[in-house]
Nucleic acid binder design. Structure first.
Lengths: 217, 217
DNA sequence: CTGCATCCACTTTGATACTG
DNA sequence: CAGTATCAAAGTGGATGCAG
């Protein structure tokens, strides 16, 4: 397998050699949420040709970013997961995601929104300073989209789907007719008070403080 | 000009739509150092085909990342520069560069090292906390490579070539026979004391504290 | 000389079909 | 479920041409 590379002794160039090809970072994005099967990745990445997914996974494995695991007895099958090296790409994803978000206008017709993208966006908005010492758990509902966040004395964990254990606060956004369900839309609704809550109200303010960027002055 | 896009309402996907194509981020890297002419970019990006450079510049201009300026009277010609939006890509470049550096082994034969890459690497190693309140200026020589760093009460500026005004300390690395001149090689030499200094010796320690990452424990 | 445009061989991608 | 096979279309890399 020949790899075309930039031929520069430079961290950026090397990074692009390893994860700069089409679809690669989106695959990594999905895997940062949790290990996935081949078909999970396919459905999370609408439009990816199956042979490209297959090729990228092999390249990322070769690059030491992704690990291919064959699950043993219980639920047999193949699972792809990030290696520790791959997990260290998270700051990169967050930096790119933040920049891209700032360039992201309204959703264009045909735009898909993926639950994984929403969780990435929540992580990109996380404010460690505000989180110091905070403990709590939240579940977010916006359209079909469900995600959760858990803070344990400032330590942050998040994912798609319902919270692993009963959350302190369940928040459901009331969306306008043509609002697209995204993390942004959720935050917008929450700030406008357009959320149904199950749990103590103060935790909503905590959530907004810890999980949204303060407005620029 | 039709643009192929990922069709996801996601900051990361949008970022990749805008600057994810081959060579794009390397062009941005060179422009973060200073505005460039077309031919400067060509020589800083060995191997880039001229039509690809031309296409990328147009796409980046369309994306609002790069600005094409026609210099007026004095030295007539076209200059490409980053827009404010483009400048905000710097955290992305640093994050990618840091990750890539950690995956960067020894230089492979044929690897080119560009002065711009060295400056990016220096910036990626900058420790704002250590820099607080510090003032000083340094000029680095390693092989043919010359770069500078200026700290003004913690505010950081850097670039390729000699320092804009007389530096407080000029440091010249004494390289081994087959060491490739890079920022890394410079730091390695400096830590081993293999540098010739013109200026006060204490400033070398300051430099190493502010411009290199502390070792992991 | 700078700042590209054009041409062509080759590679990669996207779309679809098919298999263990 | 987890891919491989096939093929047209698009993109890349390299060389060259050319106007201002």
């Amino acid at each position: 397998m020949k790899r075309r590379d930039y031929g520069q002794y430079c961290g950026l160039a090397r990074a692009l050699d390893l994860v700069g090809e089409r679809w690669a970072l989106l695959i990594v994005r999905d895997l940062t949420i949790r290990p996935r099967r081949y078909t999970d990745l396919q459905s999370g990445l609408p439009g990816i040709p199956t042979n490209v997914l297959s090729t990228r996974l092999k390249e990322l494995e070769q690059a030491g970013v992704v690990e291919r695991r064959v699950a043993p007895a219980p639920q047999r099958g193949v699972v792809y997961a990030l290696t520790p090296v791959g997990q260290e790409l998270e700051p990169v994803l967050l930096a790119l995601g933040r920049w891209g978000s700032s360039q992201l206008g309204d959703p264009r017709p045909g735009d898909v929104i993926s639950p994984d993208a929403a969780v990435l966006n929540m992580r990109a908005n996380f404010q460690p300073a505000e989180a110091a010492g905070v403990t709590g758990s939240w579940e977010i509902h916006v359209g079909d989209l469900v995600a959760y966040a858990v803070l344990t004395d400032g330590k942050f964990e998040s994912g798609t789907g319902p919270a692993p254990s009963t959350p302190d606060l369940v928040m459901t956004a009331r969306l306008g007719a043509d609002d697209v369900p995204s993390y942004r839309a959720f935050v917008k609704a929450a700030k406008a008070g357009k959320v149904d809550l199950v749990g103590p109200r103060e935790l909503l303010d905590t959530f907004l403080r810890v999980f949204t960027a303060p407005k620029a002055a």
